[in-house]
Design a protein around this nucleic acid. Sequence first.
DNA 1: GTCCCTATACTCGGATAGCAAGTGTCCGAGTATAGGCGG
DNA 2: CCGCCTATACTCGGACACTTGCTATCCGAGTATAGGGAC
Lengths: 168, 168
Amino acid sequence: MRIGEGVEWAAHCCTVLAVLPTGQALPAARLAEFHGVPAAYLAKTLQALSLAGIAQSLSGPRGGYRLARPAMQISLLDVVLAVDGADTAFRCTEIRRRGPSAVAAVSYRGPCGIARAMWKAEDAWRRELAATSISDLVEEMLASVPERQLARGATWIAHVEIERRSRS
Amino acid sequence: MRIGEGVEWAAHCCTVLAVLPTGQALPAARLAEFHGVPAAYLAKTLQALSLAGIAQSLSGPRGGYRLARPAMQISLLDVVLAVDGADTAFRCTEIRRRGPSAVAAVSYRGPCGIARAMWKAEDAWRRELAATSISDLVEEMLASVPERQLARGATWIAHVEIERRSRS
DNA sequence: GTCCCTATACTCGGATAGCAAGTGTCCGAGTATAGGCGG
DNA sequence: CCGCCTATACTCGGACACTTGCTATCCGAGTATAGGGAC
């Protein structure tokens, strides 16, 4: 089992978007540059956030991405489901219905015990993710990230905005 | 995110092995036939169970697989980790250390908040799986599976053993 | 009749192809902006 | 001086290759068994 890199990228992007000055948007290319990841592929991930209604995309100059709602109302689960897909990790293929002991399909009521146990565990996983919001992550980041890095990040973001304005 | 089919197969195989008469072993080919899955590939999965010490493999005629310890002492988590690997689903690539705001590596203490949140959720998932044993699954199966199917399965397994004995 | 030896056939185990999904990239459609023009 | 129009350049969005890991398969090594032969 493996969670794609896109989830990690999306989560980090959300924390960055959460600390942007109100109304400001950040283009996908800048987000990619900020995190040191391929811009072309990150675009795909951000697109998923946009489709899920987590982020908002603005076209044209001064456009980019910004959060669609307050960071406190965006859970980590929302991000994971948006990027990684909402399907369950475990997929029951109903192998109990195959082989020599199989009986008429109508006899099987509800999912088998193994599937239920696996899905129950996934529910616990989702509950835990749902309990963490982007604002929680931001708070944690502000408290634990080296001060020097916070300053660098803030400076860089401000610089991006300054360049965008000066170009006009 | 996706859990391989091998996990489902392995779990079902464990429940079958758990209800075998004491001392009896079932070859991989028969387990595959019983579940209607490719024998050659199931062998790979059973090998993983063997390596993890969950199942015991016996070579030669009358050989096959059997559980290495009582079903009550085998958790669903044991099976999942054995087949799917023990790595965490989420892998932190430390993208916070990349890009323009990165600082000296020594400044980063412990994993970032996002990784911690993801791993915390995985812990909840594992705890849930660890709370379910193979014997629980067997019990559930005996209670919920159509009686006709239980009878068919038992007959089939008995028939396999009879054929093996008669061949000598 | 009992013990030992050998040949057998059945088992697992690891090395080897095929395929699907995730990863990475590109170019075209759409839009807010900025400057120029007319009133 | 103000408002409108047009050209521009920047943005996102979806369509297109590539690589990794899962799926599927095969053949060889090892072993308990069963039968035959010797004692």
